[in-house]
């Protein structure tokens, strides 16, 4: 558990030459095992900039483990993760957790939760307030942000989590099954909200989802993983124009991409 994070800083700040143009995150030679069981061995991956990459795969294949390692929440045994050639320490990232109840700070009002990362970054009170107002305006928030998180509905809490994540203008946004605890109506609303944010900010996003429909709907590419030891099964692109609407779900393009993902998924599950 406490193995040091191995990052090879000596290799310099440039993106590895092997990575295609437009790559934001390069993962090279990633190793991770749990209690002697290898989960990732010599894992390589390029994640494109200003796109949404969905991560999908069989249960227990390590979807969340992957983004936790990339985001620095979980140490890995060996390997290198670079963001535009920079290490994690020089990169501003944000993370939206599945369990918003346990991720928000219940002792702070919603608005103060949103300002917290800005305070951590040492911004002045005026700067924090200005950024918070900006977010409130762009999210068209109708509920009272001066309430405590536990006084808000699940959807509202996750909205606050997302606002908190976006407050410091992150270069990369990680989302770990962000909508899986919400009802379907709220999920549809939040998907579109997230898509709006993406279109407005073009932030590189990595979304772990256990819902294939959602994974494809939001993604520019779907990263499909195999059973452990985890490999890339396939990367399925989905290039449908944005903004996508609920009608997108019935378009040929969507149906084809989703069918392709399902094929690969089933092949991997049966393997």
């Amino acid at each position: 558990m406490n193995a040091p994070v191995a990052t090879d800083v000596a290799s310099g700040r440039a993106t590895p030459a092997s990575a295609p143009h437009g790559t934001h995150i390069t993962i090279r030679g990633l190793y991770k095992s749990f209690q002697g069981q290898p989960l990732y061995t010599n894992f390589d991956l390029d994640i494109p900039k200003a796109q949404i990459t969905s991560v999908f795969g069989p249960n227990g294949c390590g979807k969340s483990t992957l983004i936790n390692m990339v985001s620095g929440l979980l140490p890995f045994d060996a390997g290198q993760v670079l963001f535009d050639g920079k290490t994690l320490t020089d990169t501003k990232i944000s993370y939206v957790f599945q369990n918003y109840r346990e991720a928000l700070f219940p002792w702070k009002r919603a608005i103060d939760n949103i300002k917290y990362p800005l305070q951590l970054a040492g911004q002045s009170k005026a700067e924090c307030n200005r950024r918070a107002e900006e977010l409130v305006a762009s999210f068209e928030i109708k509920f009272d942000l001066h309430r405590y998180p536990y006084e808000l509905s699940g959807g509202q809490q996750q909205l606050v989590s997302i606002m908190r994540a976006l407050a410091p203008h992150p270069e990369v946004l990680f989302l770990d099954e962000p909508f899986s605890a919400l009802d379907y109506e709220m999920t549809l609303f939040m998907r579109d909200k997230l898509q709006d944010i993406f279109q407005a900010t073009r932030t590189t996003m990595i979304l772990v989802s256990h819902d294939l429909e959602e994974a494809v709907y939001l993604a520019d590419q779907v990263l499909l993983l195999t059973r452990r030891p985890t490999k890339i099964a396939e990367i399925v692109p989905f290039r449908s124009a944005r903004p996508r609407h609920p009608e997108t779900l019935t378009s040929d393009e969507f149906v084809r991409a989703k069918a392709r993902c399902l094929d690969v998924f089933q092949r991997e599950v049966r393997r």
Binding site: G72, L73, S94, F105, L120
Partner: peptide, 14 residues
């Protein structure tokens, strides 16, 4: 203490 909350603060750079 909830590990998620600590992780949330850590990932924000605390």
């Amino acid at each position: 203490a909830r590990k998620t909350r600590q992780a949330a603060a850590r990932v924000m750079g605390a």
